[in-house]
Amino acid sequence: MRSKIADRIMAETPEETKRFVRKYGDIVMRVHQLLKERGITQQKLADQLGKSPSEISKWLKGEHNFTLKSLTKLEAELGADIFYVPKKDSYHVQQGGQFKSSVAKAEPVSGTIPFTSTHRQELTPTEPVAA
């Protein structure tokens, strides 16, 4: 059962906060998905990046506060996209009143997971573009 108090607080939540949390969740899921998919442990990733395991743990938990540099370093090491910058033609596209995430789509992290991404779908020219 949904709390009316929670609903009220969420109705007052600024768009900026909603976007921040949405992207936080997408990145957390995406990084964990990639590690699981590739069978990479935190220790192994630390070795590959020449970092200490505790530093990698902080990275993966977001405590390090991801920078563009650290995210792209992770992307390079994991060999897959974590974060996208949408192209101009899909930049303002809305679907059902929801903003689009520019983070690679994360699938559930159990079992074998095929790589999927949202940006390629976003780039299809048939999509309507909002003014």
Binding site: A6, I9, M10, T13, T17, V21, G25, M29, H32, P108
Partner: peptide, 20 residues
């Protein structure tokens, strides 16, 4: 507000209760 967004939107409506 951030915590509620995480619980209700990110976990509740998007990704589910994943260990991460």
């Amino acid at each position: 507000q951030e915590l509620l967004e995480l619980v209700i939107e990110t976990i509740g409506n998007i990704h589910g209760a994943q260990d991460a």
